[in-house]
Amino acid sequence: MTKPIAELIFLSEIHYFHEHTWANVEGDLVKVGITDFAQDSLGNIIFVELPNVGETYSKGDEFGQAESAKTVSALYMPVSGEIVGVNSELEEAPQHVNEDPYGAGWMIVVKPSNLDEIKELLSKEDYLNQIK
């Protein structure tokens, strides 16, 4: 059962991509995961396929997929860059994405090729307007 949007959590300090991933700038790196809305729509996540460190992707590229018993959902890069870290704990515990999408459920760390792309992402308000 999906929750009403009012019951979902959206942080103010992070950036949102319209394909339901979030980006959080940490120094000169960007941490990426999926939003509370995305994890709630997917239902119980049973597998997360993530890229390898060293691979590079452009903004909007598919970098992996999240699978629940009901659906498979592609994961999209909010910014262009090189993968410098992946959350390998999700292999054993994909439920972290459901339980804590902005924390333990993070997916990748990107070394962005153009940090200006962050400015093109949505704010919490813009993203909320999109999913309402």
Partner: peptide, 15 residues
């Protein structure tokens, strides 16, 4: 039962 007590077992089996 993947919707009940077997949730974790199913997840492992699926992975």
């Amino acid at each position: 039962d993947m919707k009940a007590a077997g949730k974790e077992a199913f997840q492992k089996f699926y992975a």
